[in-house]
């Protein structure tokens, strides 16, 4: 029974939402949590990926903007300062001892310093960053093109994906499955705008945005663009990484193909 003083507008709305619709909500939750339903919905992602690959030129460039379009307030997202001792030590020494290892299915594994990366074939681009949450910001990125680095390491024939392992842990777990990682395929890896960015808006990449380097994958959503990259590995399958879906957020329900 509702007492008279409960019968205010707020109480009525709240009561309606929790009471009458409670049954419906529980049903929706059950449907949404069902593995069969999720498998059926995942078909949509496959259709999206194939349709975009079919209709969009593999090498089509993302739009590049004039300097005046750069956002004054570019919101950092996800981890803004990895708290591991190793990472903190790298920050205090200005990433002097940081090395980027490129290994896995390559003929010639590489271990590159920040200076090596700065000396590698470079690209500068002013592009729009689209977050999966819905917002967008524009920044100027300068970095080493991933394609020439992979050529230098000589990718083996059986390699299909590039995996990026990062210094940030978003979820503390015993098995390390809370560590950030991402995978992209070789088509996207060799895209001319795919760079390992070390500068943002003409200054060294800030810690909040992924120092010393973050991936820029201009035609996909922000969560694909791993920050704090420590190690790159060429792999033939991502099933053995994390929970097997190809990335930290993919393991938690985001789409591996982040083209929309």
């Amino acid at each position: 029974m509702m007492r008279r003083d409960d019968l205010n507008r707020r109480g009525l709305i709240g009561g309606a939402a929790t009471g009458a619709l409670g049954v419906g909500l529980a049903g929706c939750e059950r449907i949404s949590a069902s593995p069969q339903v999720n498998r059926a919905l995942a078909v949509g992602e496959g259709v999206t990926r194939r349709a975009q690959r079919l209709l969009v030129d593999r090498m089509a460039l993302a739009r590049e903007y004039p300097p005046q379009a750069i956002s004054r307030d570019f919101r950092p997202n996800g981890t803004t300062a990895p708290d591991s001792d190793e990472y903190q030590a790298l920050v205090t020494t200005g990433f002097q001892d940081w090395r980027l290892d490129i290994g896995g299915l390559v003929e010639r594994p590489l271990s590159l310093s920040l200076a090596d990366l700065r000396a590698a074939p470079t690209r500068t681009q002013i592009t729009r960053h689209d977050c999966v949450e819905g917002w967008s910001c524009i920044a100027k990125w300068r970095g080493a093109r991933l394609g020439p680095l992979l050529d230098r390491a000589k990718v083996k024939r059986e390699a299909r994906y590039v995996a990026f392992f990062c210094a940030d842990t978003l979820e503390l777990t015993l098995d390390g499955s809370g560590d950030y990682y991402e995978t992209i395929d070789l088509v996207d890896a060799y895209h001319p705008q795919t760079i390992l960015a070390y500068d943002m808006n003409d200054a060294p990449l800030p810690v909040a945005h992924g120092a010393p380097i973050r991936l820029r994958l201009e035609r996909q959503l922000g969560y694909k663009m791993a920050k704090y990259v420590m190690r790159i590995e060429l792999i033939d399958s991502f099933e053995g990484l994390g929970r097997g879906r190809g990335g930290y957020w993919e393991d938690r329900g985001y789409q591996w193909y982040a083209g929309i």
């Binding site: 909500l25 929706c28 939750e29 949404s32 999720n38 995942a42 078909v43 949509g44 992602e45 985001y254």
Partner: peptide, 19 residues
């Protein structure tokens, strides 16, 4: 949809039904 906060699931529903 779903009633609880789950951006990934919301996107999966949205794009599947958009098709």
């Amino acid at each position: 949809l779903p009633p609880y906060a789950d951006l990934g699931a919301g996107r999966a529903w949205h794009f599947a039904f958009a098709w």
